[in-house]
């Protein structure tokens, strides 16, 4: 592969742009295909399918190899707290694209959160830029309804594949009441994982981060687990 082609691929990955790297097995020729170029490409339908499923593999009886690069799953966290410091690090290792939102500037400092997108803004404002979608995991960690609730509302509306909220059962019962008064159904509210995280008896903030990340991965790979 040419270095220039790799640079172009890396630039697209960094910009969260879906791309397929096609390698013709007979000649070794390589090319990048973007979703917009699919229909002009000789492998049109096969490429369209690859963008849909995200699956890399040999196609056309082994004549070409497709390596599919879809944007990584997003993780949006409200709360620049102790748990999110550990969670941000671990999420990066797991290949998730993590953003931390907290309007409290004493918490949201770059010193506490190196190597992660940090928005010292209210969720409503931050969500205009970091749009949650079905490929997003949302985690509410502030314990403060003023910050967590707008995040949960946006996450429920955007049908995030995972939604979790920190807090005791009592805290969550109050949260449920508030969301009901905002018009969310029982089924919608039941999508929120609370208490958050897998039950591994986590105590310290990094341990709680492991249990949260474990639950996100379990949800993300649910189909594979069932298979």
């Amino acid at each position: 592969m040419k270095l220039a082609l790799l640079s172009a691929l890396n630039a697209r990955i960094a910009n969260r742009e879906a791309t397929v790297l096609v390698t013709e097995m007979a000649t070794g020729a390589t090319r990048l295909v973007t979703p917009e170029q699919v229909m002009q490409d000789p492998l049109g339908e096969v490429l369209a399918e690859a963008f849909r499923t995200g699956k890399s593999g040999l196609v056309e009886e082994g004549r070409a190899f497709l390596n599919v690069h879809l944007p990584p799953v997003k993780l949006i966290v409200t709360g620049a707290v102790h748990i999110s410091q550990a969670l941000a690090e671990m999420a990066r290792l797991a290949g998730l694209d993590c953003t931390i939102i907290d309007p409290r500037t004493a918490f949201a400092t770059p010193e506490r959160f190196p190597n992660v997108t940090l928005l010292a803004e209210w969720p409503d404002q931050a969500f205009l830029r970091v749009k949650p979608d079905r490929f997003t995991a949302f985690v509410a960690l502030t314990h403060d309804p003023k910050i967590d609730d707008p995040g949960l509302v946006a996450a429920l509306r955007a049908q995030c594949f995972y939604i979790g909220a920190l807090g005791s059962r009592k805290t969550h019962a109050k949260r449920v009441e508030r969301l009901q008064s905002q018009g969310f159904s029982e089924a919608e509210i039941a999508r929120i994982h609370a208490p958050i995280g897998l039950d591994i008896g986590a105590v310290s903030p990094p341990e709680i981060a492991v249990s949260i990340l474990g639950e996100i991965i379990a949800t993300m790979r649910a189909k594979r687990r069932a298979a």
């Binding site: 270095l3 640079s7 890396n10 990955i13 290792l93």
Partner: peptide, 22 residues
């Protein structure tokens, strides 16, 4: 490094003048 980081690493190495295989 995750797989995307690896390709970035390969680019870095090549730009530093090293021979690289993926």
């Amino acid at each position: 490094l995750n797989d995307s980081d690896l390709l970035a690493r390969a680019e870095e190495w090549a730009k530093a003048g090293r021979g690289v295989a993926i």
